[in-house]
Structures are given as structure tokens and as C-alpha cells.
Simulated assay, not measured.
Amino acid sequence: MKKILLLSFISILFLGCSDSNFNNKNPYLPNYSFTIDINMNLPAYSDLKFVSNAVYIPGEGARGIIVFNSGNGYNAFDAACPNQVLSSCSTMTIKGINAVCPCDNEEYSLFTGLSQGGSQYPMKQYRVEVNGTNLRVYN
């Protein structure tokens, strides 16, 4: 009886574990593994010290990365249009607190990554660690 109770307790512990609902799957965008360290003391990234500012970083992910200061932390998204096949027009641009896909003019919130028009896939999000004035963005 003790073994059954112990096994039940251990099963509940394992089933209670979570991945923080982090889903990075999108059929249009490949999964590239990368890690990039961002020093916000450098002029190119100093805007990230202020709420509602975003910075585009080329050369990582599928089409570069957009890093955004949400006020509650930092969000990092792939700059590739999430509802388009990779093409010459599928790199999003920053427009205030949104990112715009030039292929279909769809806007996505940099707070949530969700489409303003209800498109199927949200922006592909990456993990961000904060260490003082440095950020580590990784997949």
C-alpha cells in the first residue's frame, strides 16, 4: 500500500511540471538554435532600457530578432512573418509597439506576439534572460 501511495505521489509531481506554456512551433518557420548576448549599455541597444521600445537584431533566427521592453520584462520574437512562407517580403518591420509583415500588411503586438487581424499563428517567440543591463536571447 505504501508503494502505491509513493508511486501516486511521484506521478502527481511529474504531471504537475510545466514548460511555462512555451510553444515555439510554426510550420512556416524553421527552428534555429542560437544564443545572443545583448549589452544594453551599447548605443545600438540602449533604447531597450525604456518601456515600449523595440530593437531589430539581424542575423539570428529565421529573419532576425525583434527584442521589446514590455515594462514587465523583455520579449523576443523572430522577425519572420509567422503566417507566410519565407520569401523576399517576409521580414517584419517595427511600427511603434507592433511589428508589420510587408507581405500582407498584418500587424502583430510586440507585447503578446498576437496578430491584430486574427491570423492563425502568432509571432515566433524566443526566451529572454535578464542579467543587469545584459540580455540573453536564445532558442
Rank of each mutant, 00 (worst) to 15 (best):
Y28S: 02
T93W: 05
L110D: 13
F14Y: 11
N83F: 07
N31A: 05
P30A: 07
L7N: 03
I12N: 10
G113V: 07
F50S: 06
N134C: 14
V100W: 01
P122Q: 08
T112P: 07
N24L: 02
L114N: 15
F22W: 03
C103M: 11
I66E: 01
Q125P: 06
N39I: 06
N53F: 04
F111M: 12
A99I: 01
S88L: 05
G71R: 06
N72P: 03
N21D: 01
L114D: 13
N39F: 05
I66C: 03
Y32P: 01
L114W: 14
V128I: 08
E106M: 13
S52P: 05
R63K: 11
M92I: 01
E106Y: 13
D19S: 04
G118R: 09
V67I: 12
E106L: 08
T112D: 06
R127P: 12
Q120V: 15
K25W: 15
N53A: 05
N24G: 03
L13M: 15
K49F: 11
L29Y: 00
G73M: 10
G73S: 10
V128P: 10
N41T: 10
S33C: 09
N24I: 03
C103P: 11
P43H: 04
Q84D: 04
G117P: 07
N23F: 11
F22C: 04
Y74K: 08
L135F: 14
N98Q: 09
L135A: 14
L5K: 12
D37L: 03
D19L: 07
G96R: 02
G117S: 14
I10T: 09
N23E: 11
K49E: 14
I65P: 05
I57W: 00
G16E: 14
T35A: 08
S46G: 04
S52Y: 07
N24P: 04
N23K: 11
P43F: 01
N83H: 10
D37H: 02
E107T: 09
V67Y: 02
D47F: 02
T112H: 03
L135R: 15
D47H: 01
N53K: 10
L7W: 03
D37R: 06
L114Q: 15
I66F: 00
V85W: 07
D47M: 00
K3E: 12
A99E: 01
A62W: 01
P27D: 03
T91C: 02
M1T: 11
M40G: 13
E107Q: 05
A44C: 00
I36H: 03
L48P: 12
N83T: 09
E60F: 15
Y28Q: 00
L6S: 07
L42W: 11
L135P: 15
I66G: 00
V137R: 00
I38H: 02
A79E: 00
K49M: 13
L29W: 02
L7G: 04
I57S: 06
E129F: 05
L5S: 10
V55L: 03
S8L: 09
L15N: 12
I36T: 06
G132V: 06
N75K: 10
S70G: 15
G118E: 11
S20V: 03
L110T: 15
N83I: 10
G117W: 11
R136F: 08
D19V: 08
L86N: 00
P58L: 04
